[in-house]
Amino acid sequence: MIRFRLRHTKLGKLRFISHRDIARVWERALRKADMPVAYTAGFSPRPKLAFGLALSTGHESMAEYLDIELRPDEGLEIDVTTLPERLNEQLPPGIDVTAAAPLAPGTLSLQESVTSCTWRIEVPGLAPAAVSDLATAALAADALVLTRVRKGKEVTDDLRPAILSLTITGPTATGTELEAELAVHPRSVRPAELLRAISPGHPLVEGRVLRVAQWTWRDGARHEPLATSQPPREDPDVRPRVAAAVERAQPQPFGERLLA
């Protein structure tokens, strides 16, 4: 069984497409790139793709992951170093493969192995000092109780154990950017829930949200779920990458494109 794990972005206008849409985009891109993807057997064969944690529609990400299983015959010939480039040619602007690595047999699935995610959350209308006070208070609290309605019933959770870190990463044009590492278990905490929990009296508005990283826990330390020499960018300023994605989005002058 030949499997690859890919890391890719979801940036710009594309952030408005859903997790299901992303799956379809991938299926088409892999066919366009002529990748020897393995298919399930049976009445309705499906490509063997495994996606990680879903990203909410509207959120951006620097660190989405996807496992692809290839057919044993032709899959052996795939060169992992040129894989990102080969796929990026077929992917829409904003979805860029930034790393690829073969998966060792027996590697846990993304759903099973990811333990936390790091988010950059924009809080519009509040100065860094104000958000900092809220973050400090939240981290000092013993419990952060959040009530939500689930399947018609009110459910109360303590979010505090799921908040692994909170840092102010700077002012933005309209407010403050907060970086948060949030645990995935026992359930994935959403950025909007974090904002409700740390400011129960005055619900904070969720601005732009960017997933910066996903983490697995192994040998007492956190790791990216992909063994690679290309780490996700820690640089708080992701704009250059967004700009690059947008630049790639520029179509050719339409006359040439139609003539081509």
């Binding site: 206008k13 497409i17 859903s18």
Partner: peptide, 8 residues
């Protein structure tokens, strides 16, 4: 369904 409005 905001994807209705993005083009691309």
């Amino acid at each position: 369904k905001p994807a209705r409005y993005i083009g691309c």
